[in-house]
């Protein structure tokens, strides 16, 4: 039986086999993530009964016993974990104390705003970071390289929440270049929901004015969110490009008399890009986390704002829901990146 599975496995085309393998790993990671989030709710010395019932109810032993039974807190830990997993599989992430709605419903509502913000910020960060990184590598150890080094270090050093405030003050309050906080102006109806991303939806439904408005609102938070990632992508691109520029095949391309531009962008960048794509997957996860700070300043109705409000009311279920969903997104993005990597570089398919 094993033999059959094994021989069948090796008859699959390389890319498919690679993808299936990565999918299994991704699924295992997701299970691990639920385990960590379960463990945290257990290990953390806050008593969930105290946290969720409030003082008056918690002082009544009968209510506490009922509560423990209802949520299976009187059972052994493995049983509790099994129950927890079972509920997760049904999409039950508990109830938010703050909104009194299922956490899963809340997440669905808030997710698209964060995804839109992160995608726009990621595009900005990749474009700026790759361009700066290439420039730094080509001018290695000369002044453009040094200047870019300082810029990228500043990018990873600036406190996001502070930059968000300063930018808002300058571009909205002083210069009036930004329309302010939120996703759209007050009273502007949202575009018909297709993807949940306002800019895309406005574009897909052909509403140019709405598209421009959505874009003007997202520009500032996306720019702020992109700073940190730009720094990371810049440094990584520089290292990857230096690595790549030292390769024999880059020298061979120069020996063929190709213009410097072609050598850098076609021959040197391509292998570096594979490494850059990998780091961008990890950077995306960090960006989702950074969204908490940006969203709380710009009242951007996303997962970050939701997590922030939940944290203020110590709403553990809601925050765990957010971390769980972001961890899963992170795993999925990196899974996608791995597969993309295999498509870019034909040598990767084992």
């Amino acid at each position: 039986m094993m033999q059959m599975i094994r021989s069948g496995w090796y008859r699959l085309p390389g890319l498919l086999r690679f993808t299936l393998g990565r999918l299994v790993v991704g699924a295992l990671l997701c299970v691990g993530v639920t385990f960590i989030s379960f463990t945290l709710t257990q290990v953390v010395p806050g008593d969930p009964v105290m946290a969720n019932l409030g003082e008056r109810a918690a002082s009544d032993p009968e209510i506490v016993a009922l509560y423990r039974e209802r949520y299976g807190l009187d059972q052994s830990l493995p049983e509790q974990y099994a129950r927890y997993l079972g509920r997760l599989l049904q999409g039950d992430l508990g109830e938010s104390q703050q909104t009194h709605r299922p956490v899963a419903t809340d997440l669905a509502t808030y997710m698209s705003a964060t995804i839109e913000l992160a995608i726009v910020a990621m595009i900005l960060a990749m474009a700026a970071g790759v361009a700066l990184g290439i420039t730094a590598a080509v001018w290695r150890n000369r002044w453009p390289d040094q200047a870019i080094r300082v810029i990228s270090l500043a990018g990873v050093s600036v406190p996001t929440f502070w930059l968000a405030l300063v930018c808002l003050y300058v571009f909205f309050f002083k210069l009036n270049l930004s329309p302010g906080v939120g996703r759209l102006g007050p009273g502007t109806p949202a575009p018909p929901t297709l993807t949940g991303l306002y800019t895309f939806d406005a574009l897909l439904s052909g509403q140019w004015g709405l598209f421009r408005e959505a874009l003007s609102y997202i520009a500032l938070p996306a720019l702020v969110l992109a700073t940190y990632t730009t720094g990371i992508v810049t440094r990584f691109t520089r290292v990857a490009m230096l690595d790549s520029l030292g390769n024999d095949y880059v020298r061979a391309a120069r020996a063929k008399g190709l213009p410097a531009r072609t050598v850098i962008l076609r021959h040197a960048l391509r292998p570096a890009l594979a490494a850059i794509v990998t780091v961008s997957g990890m950077a995306f996860g960090r960006m989702l986390a950074g969204a908490v700070l940006v969203e709380s300043v710009y009242s951007w109705p996303g997962l970050g704002l939701y997590a922030y409000r939940s944290a203020l009311t110590l709403d553990l279920q809601a925050i765990m829901g957010v971390s769980l969903i972001i961890a899963v997104i992170y795993i999925l993005v990196n899974l996608g990146v791995d597969i993309l990597y295999a498509v870019i570089d034909p040598r990767i398919r084992y």
Binding site: Y249, A252, R270, I344
Partner: peptide
């Protein structure tokens, strides 16, 4: 370069672009 005078490198495993 590459037109009237061309060059061949030592290691053919690395001198061709892998991608």
């Amino acid at each position: 370069r590459g037109r009237q005078m061309a060059m061949i490198f030592q290691d053919p495993m690395t001198a061709l672009h892998p991608m």
